[in-house]
Each structure stands twice: as C-alpha cells, then as structure tokens.
Design a protein around this nucleic acid. Structure first.
Lengths: 363, 363
DNA sequence: ATCGTTCTTGTAATCGTTTACAGCCCAGAC
DNA sequence: GTCTGGGCTGTAAACGATTACAAGAACGAT
C-alpha cells in the first residue's frame, strides 16, 4: 500500500478534501471537523506531499546558497549563519558549490528558473557582465554576498576590504612593523581585486611601499605554502626591498635552490610582517616561516583575513581581519527572505564593517 | 508576462504539448519536430518547471545530507565527497544540520516523507531505537554514515574505529611512547562510544593502561581546550599514573590552581602521548600543551582522528588516523543512488578501513 | 414567516508536467 | 487492393495538493 494522499484522509474522515486541506493549514473549521481530520491523519500516518504543494502554491520553501568552495572555512562560517536564519523561517537550505569558473555560476543562476528554490544567496568568486545580467533577469530573488559594482543594480551584502586592510596595516605600524609583504589570492577574482586595491591604498595612506607582493594561484592552504616559497625566493634573489616578485610559474622552477639560500637572517632583515588575503593563505605562510626557523611574531608578524575558525585554531593563533562573514551571511539571508515576501526591486547595498581580531601572530 | 509553460511552447511551435515534452526529454521525434520545438524554446526562453516535473514523476532529483555540525572539518570532507558524487549524477544536495539532539534527527527522518528529496545520507551523533525505527520505515532510501548495530537492518557505511585506535597506539608504541592519555568526546555519542571501546581494546592488546582519560563535552576545539585543562589538572592532583580523572564539572572549579601547579616537568614525566577522538580535540590539546611550554612531539606526542584538512593545517601538522571520511561520503552517496534505482532492501553494511597519516606531531 | 447574513462545507478547477492510449500515415507483404 | 505493423503525433488523464465558488445550515432581524 502506497502513501496515503489527502483524498484518502478525506475518505477516512468522511469529509471533503477541501476540509482536510483547511484543517491542515489551520483555516476556520468546527471543532468536530478538526477532531475527525486529525484522527484520520494520525491513523493513516498521513504526511502532506511537498512536491504537490510546491506546484500549487509556487513555493518550495527552499533557498539556495552557492559558494565556490566548501573547504574554505569562511564559507563554513557563512553557511552556518545562513542556515540558522533560513531554517528559523521554515526554509531548507540547498548548498551548491560552483567551483572557480564564472560560466558555472551563470548556469546556476539561469537554472534557478526551474523553480526548485525560492531564492538564491551567491558568493561569487569571479564576476562578469553575463553573471550580472543573469542575476538581474532571474525569476527568483538573488542576493549577492560579495563586492559587485553599484551599477549592477542587484542586492548585495558586501564587506569593506579596504577598511579591513587599513586596520591590518595600521595595527602592524602601531607595533613598529614597516617592512610588509602582501600575499593575495588570484587577482582576477572579486576578493582578489578588492584586497589588492585595499592593500595598495592602505600602504600609500601610511606612506609605505610593500616589500613584496605575491599572487597565490588560489585561496587555499596549499596555494599559501607555494606563495610562501615564492615570496622567500623572491626576497633572496631580487635584492631591492620594494620590488614585486614575478609570476608563479617561473619561480617554482628555482624553488629548491632559492629555499636553500634563504637564510633566517636574510629574510628577517628584509621583512617583518606579512598580510595574507585570507586565513588559509596566512596559515600556509606561517608553515613556510616555520620551515625557515622564522618566529611568528618574533621575526615576522602575520595577519590573515576572514577571522574564520581556523584563525583561532592555528598556532600561533592568527590575528585576522574580521570581515563579518557571519553577519554578512545572516543579513544576506534576511534580505533574501524579505525579497521573497515583497519583491519591490529597489536594490539594496549593505556594507558590513570590519573589525580586527588581535591574537598571537602579531606582537 | 509570466514565465512560459510547455503549453506556450507548444502553441508557438504549432505542435502538441506531448511532443514538446518528448523532444525535451529526448524521446523519438522527427528532425523537423525537434527543430521547431527547440526554436520555440529558444525564442520564449522556456525553462521547465521542476516543481511540476517532480510531482508527476515522483522524483525531486535532490538528496539530503544531514550532519550534526557543519563546523567540524570532518563533515566538510564528507560533504565535499557527497556533493561530488551526487552532482555528477544530476542531483542537488540539501544540507541540513541536525544539532546534537536525537529527537531532531528523528523529526528529520520522518519529515523525509514529505518527498522533498529522493534520499538521505545521515551521519548521526546519537542513535536510539526511535531513530532506527524511523529510518527503517522511511519512505525514501536512507544511508547511515556511522556505526549502528547490524541488528538495526539499515544501510550503513561505517569506519573501523577500533582498528584506527590500534594504528594510533601501535604507532606511539613503536616510537617508544607508553604513557598515553586519551581525550574523548561525549561518550553517549556514536563516535564517542566506538572510540572509547577501541582505545580500551587497543591499549589492552598491547598490555598498556591509560595514564588518563578525559571526556570533552563536545567534539569541538573549545571543548578540546577545556579537556586539556582538565587533563593536566588531573595529572597534578591525582598522583597515580593510571587513574581516570573525574567528571568535567568538579575539575573546572579548581582549574586556576591546578594550572599554576602543573609544571612542565611534572606533566612530562607522567605523560608522553595523547590520543584525541578527533582533530578538533587534538588541536585544542596542542594549544594547551603549548600554553604549558610542552613541546610537541618532543615532550608529548599527539594523534588526532579524521585526518581532516585541519590536521594538515595545524602546527605542528597533526598525525591523524584517517577514518576514510571522504571515501565514506563517496560510498554513502553511491549506495544511496543505487538504492534509489533499485530499492530491494537487503541492507548493506560497508566498512571503510583506516590508515594512519603520519605528520610532525609524533616523533 | 420570510429574508438576509454569516459561517461552514463540498465540488471542481487549477498549478505544469509526463505518459497511456488512440489515431493517423505510410511502407511492405500477400 | 487489402492488410499488417511500426513510427509519430495528439488528446486527455493523471500526479496531490490549494482555493474560488456555490450551496446549505443556522440564526437573528424584520
């Protein structure tokens, strides 16, 4: 025997399907009616079919969260915040990982038209006009968690990376560190560009120029270690303190030799602090520092960004710029829910301000 | 103008809705028919409604993954593996966090009857008869990722914790460490009991008895640190090397004093290794060791379990028992997909064997 | 007693697909 | 020339809920 439907319940209770539906949805009904329907529901073990309900009411009570990589602890923080808001409102959360490619993001947004979810929170790694266009034309509300231009005309909850960079640079300065290197993620990504510009501005504002800048191939731990290798190799070979290192490709070939040569003293006199574009990169850098017997923060201070759980767990605990991932997640979810209720498209742009979580990786 | 439906496409193409549906689903049709339908689809920007489709075919092409806490990196590993398999098969993934409470898990399983997903992978923290029963009676296939008794008669993919514990203990023994303490998570959880028993057996098999055993209140980093405090307090106050420490509550009251007294030498002569029930706990312990100037692995070796990304990222990198989370996730997803295709309920029980990932936290 | 109001309940249409069934056309065999 | 059979195509009935509308009951006002 298959699952009972509302018709079965109606038959068992001796009432009409409409009445069953009304009781189930808490609409007006006599006590006796409620009584009978509930008894029948109990007896048959009836559970309403959400597929059918979705078709009729045009809502799935699902929301989608799209992130580039679930392995990045910042997305875990965000996901947790979104889940909390969303499930409190009676929605389920569909989590999708888009990967690094923008065409997959576009495909995802377009696919929302299938109606399997009532809204989308997307944190895009890369953005192009196609993506903006698809978001604008999307049949369901979309909230972007990340920096997109105001001209795009879409709802966004974004962090203030430049301000965050300023906090990082000024903290280092206050501790007497002025020989600062920057390890960024790919500069063709949304966070990558924002942080590159933020770093440059923050340094300029304080009359500093960077000791080195390295672009990691990804926002991951492994890429952070590679970037560390490249960073130290660059410091050794090129003597000039403010020069930028070359691209990743060429450096890796000479890694072995460069690493041999990069003595503790050599590096430490050129460099006394590193800012990384996220916590994973920062931790990767710290590992490479340790491999070279450089003390954190004694020889080199390190600052990460995102203030994810990893920052607290790393050793030494990582000073990190809190870009408000949890709050961004929470507010993105709230904004999305609001849009679903009332979709008067006057795009909102909410900015969450950063704070600095000072831990042991800076003096 | 609202979204076009299949009827609109049919009208535009001058054919019947059935033909449109057939073309869209790749069934037999003349070239001209395919031509006309596709042109109409293009022109109108038609996208099929998955809600309607779900109702008709009784499939949502969604799978649910339920875990206790997305903050635990082992679930991130598992989630990534599940996502990969599932999305390759054309399914979406609904991620639900159940929290630590078994009644919420039961509610979730019961709720699957609503039909919003075609199957469920659940990694339950706590299991009781109600949960087993609800899984048995569930309308959609359920695969349990975790240890449940064979008598339960449900599909499971489980780890071999005892074997894993044996790997850990024997590795320590081979390195000359015999004064081993164990930091477990809550013992009323599925992994908690499995690991407690596994540890006891592994020790006995090697003729050892534990220096101390501590039960953390949770499988988290914070709980790991608390457990560390308790562990060292216990070592100081109770002189006997093989005694178990008391419950958490009483110890915390005397923490301040105990911590003062726990000198580097005092601890190191009673203890030369700690095994933790997961990586988060292990990292918490390492922080507490560092706070007491105890070197890892010089004074105390540490072994974690799960071999999550955190093990690689922690400092020193953590030797960890790989319980095959990724493989478990992958195989759970595969088994679930197989069940959806052919639900001949002869419950399978798959065991994934552990390996040891040796890193720098052991000599 | 009649009428109008309000409140509850039932009938049937509807959401947008898929699919069983029947009809049509055409080719090939007798 | 008729019949059989096989492809395509169209009509219409599902899938399981919600909800507009109508009908009936109860009740007070006139």
């Amino acid at each position: 025997m298959s699952r009972p439907t509302i018709a079965g319940v109606a038959r068992a209770a001796g009432v009409s399907v409409a009445s069953v539906s009304r009781v189930l949805n808490g609409l007006a009904a006599t006590e006796e009616m409620v009584e009978r329907v509930q008894r029948a529901v109990q007896e048959l073990g009836y559970v309403p079919d959400s597929r059918a309900r979705s078709l009729k009411v045009g809502r799935t009570y699902q929301l989608t969260l799209a992130v580039a990589d679930v392995g990045n602890p910042v997305y875990v923080t965000m996901m947790r915040a979104v889940e909390e808001v969303v499930s409190a409102a009676g929605y389920r959360l569909v989590v999708t990982t888009t990967g690094p490619d923008v065409v997959d993001e576009v495909a995802l947004v377009r696919g929302m038209a299938r109606g399997y979810a009532d809204g989308l929170v997307i944190s895009p790694l890369r953005v192009d006009d196609d993506l903006i266009k698809s978001i604008r034309e999307c049949d369901v509300p979309v909230v972007v968690a990340g920096n997109v231009p105001a001209s795009a005309g879409v709802d966004t909850i974004r962090a203030n990376s430049p301000k965050g960079m300023l906090l990082a640079v000024e903290h280092l300065l206050a501790k007497g560190r002025r020989r600062i290197a920057f390890v960024n993620g790919p500069v063709d990504t949304v966070p990558g560009t924002a942080r590159a510009k933020g770093f440059a501005d923050a340094m300029k504002a304080n009359g500093l120029s960077p000791v080195a800048e390295v672009e990691a191939v990804d926002f991951t731990f492994a890429a952070g270690r590679e970037a560390g290798v490249e960073l130290f190799a660059g410091l050794d070979s090129a003597g000039e303190p403010s020069g930028k290192t070359g691209v990743t490709g060429e450096a890796s070939g000479t890694t072995g030799v460069a690493r041999e040569a990069s003595g503790r003293a050599g590096v430490a006199e050129q460099l006394d602090a590193v800012i990384a574009a996220n916590d994973l990169l920062a931790v990767g850098i710290m590992h490479e520092l340790a491999a070279r017997d450089l003390a954190v923060p004694g020889d080199v201070a390190v600052i990460g960004m995102d203030d994810s759980e990893l920052a607290e767990q790393s050793f030494p605990p990582l000073t990190s710029v809190n870009l408000g991932s949890a709050e961004r997640g929470r507010r993105a979810a709230e904004l999305l829910l609001a849009r679903i209720e009332d979709d008067t498209r006057t795009p909102r742009r909410i900015v969450v301000q950063p704070t600095l979580s000072v831990r042991k990786s800076t003096p």
